[in-house]
Amino acid sequence: MTDRKAELAANLAQVEERIASACAAAGREREEVTLVVVTKTYPASDVRILHELGVRQVAENRDQDAAPKAAACADLSLRWHFVGQLQTNKVRSVASYADFVQSVDRVKLVNALSAAAGRDGRELGCLIQVALDAESGERGERGGVAPDGVEELAAAVESAPGLRLAGLMTVAPLAGPFAGRQRAAFDRLMEISSRLRGNHPAANMVSAGMSADLEDAVAAGATHVRVGTAVLGVRPGLG
């Protein structure tokens, strides 16, 4: 346990240094960027160590992993972000522990989340996942709604009981015009965010960037970066 804590502390310090340097280069205050540590495939014991090290925001992408982990860490002051593609049959479980769902990409999901949040008496922060590889009206291969579908979905979230429209999220696309062009992709997301905030001023979260491209996300103006590998190491089974 002690070795693992030292390892995570060292990794966190390196990531912190990267974020601070990226903020300085972009002329931004360090406080403008929130680190969300993606703990998927790692045990609840790692989440506890991260909490000891000051981490307060964690993310998961599979309910079958997240639900027991959230339950095991229920005594900690953590904010849980669900970042994976979400099937409606998992919504009731996710709504019981998640503070934010970052992967809202269709009206059917909005309705299901609203019903579940109401049942539990909770408010869920919702980020609309934007698929920058999607054609008009289509969904991307990694989930998300096409840019021209954002406003319709935002209106659905804003009018849904138990949900709060928090902002936008994207994953750097593997295909389409932004493939391999992370900075351009994140700049495009910021344009969409600016337009969204014209009608929904409180929707000011912009979640973008991961271990490999967090600097590009910070430079573009992201408010949240989702970092897994750089903090926790290569996923078990993927090394």
Rank of each mutant, 00 (worst) to 15 (best):
residue 154 A to E: 02
residue 28 R to L: 06
residue 101 V to T: 03
residue 120 D to F: 15
residue 125 G to E: 15
residue 146 A to Y: 11
residue 146 A to N: 06
residue 86 L to F: 01
residue 101 V to Y: 06
residue 77 S to W: 00
residue 179 A to F: 07
residue 70 A to I: 02
residue 208 A to W: 10
residue 89 N to G: 03
residue 49 I to V: 11
residue 22 A to F: 06
residue 126 C to T: 04
residue 92 R to S: 04
residue 2 T to K: 00
residue 135 E to A: 15
residue 36 V to T: 13
residue 174 L to D: 15
residue 114 S to C: 09
residue 116 A to K: 02
residue 29 E to H: 08
residue 98 A to F: 01
residue 195 R to K: 13
residue 101 V to W: 05
residue 56 R to P: 04
residue 47 V to D: 09
residue 184 A to N: 07
residue 172 A to E: 07
residue 74 A to Q: 13
residue 149 G to P: 12
residue 187 D to T: 10
residue 221 G to S: 15
residue 65 D to R: 08
residue 60 E to F: 11
residue 66 A to Q: 03
residue 239 G to W: 00
residue 52 E to F: 01
residue 192 I to S: 06
residue 59 A to N: 00
residue 219 A to D: 07
residue 187 D to F: 02
residue 22 A to I: 07
residue 204 N to M: 11
residue 82 F to M: 14
residue 146 A to L: 08
residue 106 R to T: 04
residue 104 V to Q: 08
residue 232 L to S: 13
residue 55 V to M: 03
residue 217 A to L: 09
residue 221 G to V: 10
residue 121 G to I: 06
residue 121 G to F: 05
residue 75 D to R: 00
residue 154 A to T: 00
residue 188 R to P: 02
residue 14 Q to D: 15
residue 175 A to E: 14
residue 52 E to Y: 03
residue 222 A to Q: 03
residue 226 R to L: 12
residue 239 G to H: 03
residue 95 A to G: 03
residue 146 A to T: 07
residue 60 E to L: 13
residue 217 A to E: 10
residue 160 A to S: 15
residue 40 K to P: 07
residue 101 V to G: 09
residue 53 L to N: 05
residue 37 V to S: 01
residue 179 A to Q: 04
residue 65 D to A: 13
residue 195 R to G: 11
residue 155 A to G: 12
residue 167 G to Q: 02
residue 30 R to C: 01
residue 216 D to K: 15
residue 95 A to I: 04
residue 165 L to M: 09
residue 93 S to A: 14
residue 229 T to V: 09
residue 89 N to P: 01
residue 162 G to L: 12
residue 28 R to I: 06
residue 20 A to V: 10
residue 151 E to K: 09
residue 128 I to S: 12
residue 95 A to M: 08
residue 143 G to W: 05
residue 16 E to Y: 00
residue 197 R to M: 13
residue 212 A to D: 14
residue 88 T to A: 15
residue 118 G to Y: 12
residue 69 K to Y: 01
residue 224 H to P: 09
residue 164 R to K: 15
residue 115 A to N: 14
residue 182 Q to A: 14
residue 28 R to F: 00
residue 37 V to E: 01
residue 17 E to V: 09
residue 8 L to E: 07
residue 81 H to P: 05
residue 239 G to C: 01
residue 117 A to H: 10
residue 64 Q to C: 08
residue 175 A to I: 00
residue 7 E to R: 14
residue 131 A to S: 12
residue 128 I to D: 05
residue 223 T to L: 11
residue 39 T to V: 12
residue 43 P to R: 09
residue 23 C to L: 05
residue 142 R to D: 00
residue 41 T to Q: 11
residue 150 V to I: 14
residue 212 A to N: 13
residue 74 A to N: 08
residue 43 P to K: 09
residue 158 E to L: 14
residue 98 A to P: 06
residue 9 A to M: 09
residue 108 K to I: 12
residue 193 S to I: 09
residue 188 R to K: 15
residue 79 R to D: 06
residue 26 A to S: 12
residue 90 K to G: 07
residue 45 S to K: 10
residue 150 V to D: 08
residue 36 V to W: 06
residue 115 A to R: 15
residue 27 G to L: 02
residue 160 A to V: 14
residue 127 L to E: 05
residue 51 H to D: 06
residue 177 P to K: 00
residue 59 A to K: 04
residue 8 L to Y: 10
residue 75 D to K: 00
residue 58 V to L: 09
residue 133 D to C: 02
residue 181 R to A: 11
residue 94 V to L: 02
residue 107 V to S: 12
residue 169 M to C: 13
residue 170 T to P: 00
residue 228 G to S: 11
residue 103 S to T: 05
residue 212 A to H: 10
residue 64 Q to P: 14
